[in-house]
C-alpha cells in the first residue's frame, strides 16, 4: 500500500490560518491502514485545529468527511454539492488523492495533511517499510523476490556494494543490506548459481525518468 505520515500540526496550521471554512478530508484506503489519514486521524486533526483556533480567538468552521477513496472520480464526486461550503480542503489522502481532488475542484485550495512516503508494508505494529519504487519494470524474478531498486540505497543491480557489513547497509546499522537479503533468499531457494548472472543495464524509461507514467487498457475502456 501507499505509506504516508502525518504532517506536523504546526505546518498545517500555518497553511490553513487564512481560511475560515475548512473541510478535513480523509481517505478510507491506504492512509487509513497506515494510520495517517483515515476517519480517526480526520477527527483528531479537526479537534486539534478547532482547539487551536478557539484558543486564538479565531474560531473556524471545520467539517469532517472521509471518502471511500480520493483517487476515484466516483467518490470525489460526493463533495460536489457542498464544495462551495469550504474555503479550503485539508486532504489526508496520499499525494494522488490530493491532486485528484485539486484537479476536480479547480477553485478550491487543497492542502496536504500528510507526507506521502513510499510503497510499503506494515512490517510490525507502528512500523511501515518500503518495498517497491514503482520502477515500472519488475526485476524480482531475478533477485530472489527481494527488490534491489527500492531496498538498496544505491539501487545496485549487481550487488552488494563494498559497504555491506554484517548484513547491514553502509548508511545505517538499522537498514538491512538488500543484497544480503537477496543472497539469503537465493540460498534458501538453492539458486546461488543465479548470483553470477549479470543484471543488464536497466531501462529506467519506465521509471520516474521517463516522465509521468500511464497505463492504458483499450480492452477495458468503454
Amino acid at each position: 500500500m501507499i505509506i504516508a505520515e502525518k504532517k506536523p500540526i504546526e505546518e498545517i496550521i500555518d497553511e490553513v490560518k487564512d481560511f475560515n471554512r475548512l473541510l478535513i478530508l480523509g481517505c478510507n484506503e491506504c492512509v487509513t491502514v497506515c494510520e495517517a489519514g483515515g476517519k480517526k486521524e480526520v477527527e483528531i486533526l479537526a479537534s486539534a485545529l478547532r482547539m487551536y483556533f478557539i484558543n486564538k480567538g479565531d474560531e473556524k468552521v471545520i467539517t469532517e468527511n472521509t471518502l471511500e477513496r480520493q483517487c476515484d472520480h466516483e467518490y470525489l464526486e460526493e463533495l460536489r454539492s457542498n464544495i462551495d461550503d469550504y474555503d479550503a480542503i485539508v486532504s489526508l489522502a496520499c499525494g494522488v488523492g490530493v491532486q485528484f481532488a485539486a484537479e476536480k475542484y479547480l477553485t478550491t485550495p487543497l492542502i496536504p495533511g500528510v507526507n506521502t512516503v513510499c510503497l510499503g508494508a506494515n512490517e510490525d505494529r507502528g512500523l511501515w517499510t518500503e518495498r517497491c519504487q514503482a520502477c515500472g519494470s519488475c526485476v524480482l524474478a531475478r533477485t530472489g523476490g527481494i527488490c534491489p531498486v527500492s531496498r538498496c540505497a544505491k539501487r545496485v543491480l549487481n550487488g552488494p556494494c563494498g559497504g555491506s557489513t554484517n548484513g547491514k547497509c553502509e548508511i545505517s546499522k538499522d537498514v538491512d543490506c538488500a543484497w544480503q537479503l537477496i543472497l539469503d533468499r537465493l540460498k534458501a531457494l538453492d539458486k546461488m548459481g543465479d548470483y553470477e548472472k549479470i543484471a543488464p543495464i536497466k531501462d529506467w524509461s519506465t521509471d520516474r525518468a521517463g516522465g509521468p507514467r500511464t497505463v492504458t487498457r483499450e480492452d477495458v475502456k468503454i
Binding site: I9, E10, A48, L49, M51, Y52, N55, K56
Partner: peptide, 8 residues
C-alpha cells in the same frame, strides 16, 4: 503531544 501543539 497534540495538546502541547495547539496551546492547551
Amino acid at each position: 503531544k497534540i495538546l502541547d501543539q495547539v496551546g492547551v
